[in-house]
Computed example of a mutant assay.
Amino acid sequence: MSVRIAVLDDYQHAASTMADWSGPLPGTDVTFFDRAITDQAELIATLTPFQVIVAMRERTAFPRSVLEKLPELKLLVTTAGSNAAIDLVAGGELGVTVTGTRAHPPGTAELTWALILNLFRDVAGDDARIRAGQWQTTVAGDLDGEILGVVGLGRLGARVARIGAAFGMDVVAWSPNLTAERAAEHGARLVTKADLFATAKVVTVHMMLSDRSRGLIGAAELGAMREDAYLVNTSRSPIIDAEALRTALTTATGPAKVALDVFDTEPLPADHWLRSSPRTLLTPHMGYVTEKTYRIFYGDAVEDIAAFLADPTTPLRPLVP
């Protein structure tokens, strides 16, 4: 009997073209799923026959309640090197090996700047207006000389900060453990959290989601922002308090515009309030969705599967609790 492999959340029908699923995996049966399966019972019923599952980042969760009802599952591959939506402890107890892949980090930083530039220059709006017969109806803002506030100066935040400095922006940064020396290494000045939100023209979020960062940006931070400020989140949605953001966007408080690439529920439901919210620029979690990233993700996933099928005792890139 052939090994059955499920490749999940292949929204763009890209997985089959980004790696060779046949040559390295002879005798396997690969099924690509192009939709999100959000109902847990449906997910279990769909995946019950599969011995191998490839998950795209955290699009589909694998808690204990799912893993324990997939008795055929032997290998769960997640793209990238970590996945908070997989219960690694349960996987180990149930005999499910979990492996990861390499990644290509620049994509999210590049999308961050696409959003920032569109907030300043309203490229999408100008495109719509010129198609409607209009011409030069707005005046754009300038990046040079403005303050860029970076919340979280890790790998991605540092890249965003350096690009901001190249645009001539005054880059300030804050995170709980950030030092002045590290900030200076990336062309930024360390400031307090309060000062960052009160002074920055653009606040961009680049922190990992944890108990400490959940709800980090709430009513106080949003209310302290300049009336002409922009807020950008390409990190994780729960870092910004959802109700506080909704209040800020429907009242006179908070930033002038908000750009979001991440959401509490993904895909974003058709009736979600953000779809009709004023002062927003939305993209469907596209930060890491680039050709280079996908080729690394899926190419490594095939390598992980081939190695496991050859010798289950020595998996490539295993993830442990």
Rank of each mutant, 00 (worst) to 15 (best):
S2P: 15
Y11C: 00
H13W: 04
A15H: 02
S16T: 03
D20T: 12
S22A: 14
P24D: 12
F32S: 01
D34S: 11
E42M: 12
L43A: 10
A45H: 13
A45L: 10
A61D: 13
F62A: 02
S65N: 10
S65V: 03
S65R: 14
L67F: 00
L67D: 04
L70V: 04
L70C: 05
L75S: 05
V77G: 05
T79R: 08
E93H: 09
E93M: 09
L94E: 07
T97M: 12
P105K: 01
N118G: 02
L119F: 03
F120P: 00
A128P: 00
Q136W: 05
T137R: 11
T137D: 08
G141N: 01
G141S: 04
L143E: 07
E146F: 01
G149H: 12
L153G: 02
G154H: 08
R159Y: 07
R159F: 05
G164V: 06
A165H: 09
D170Y: 07
V171K: 12
S175L: 01
N177F: 00
H186V: 11
A188M: 08
T192W: 08
T199C: 01
H206C: 03
M207L: 15
M208D: 14
A219C: 02
G223H: 01
E227C: 05
A229N: 06
Y230E: 07
V232E: 04
V232D: 04
R236P: 11
T250C: 07
A256P: 07
A256L: 15
T265P: 01
E266S: 11
L268Y: 08
S276R: 09
S277H: 01
P284N: 01
H285N: 07
Y288E: 14
E291F: 01
K292H: 07
T293Q: 14
R295H: 12
Y298N: 00
A307M: 12
P318S: 06
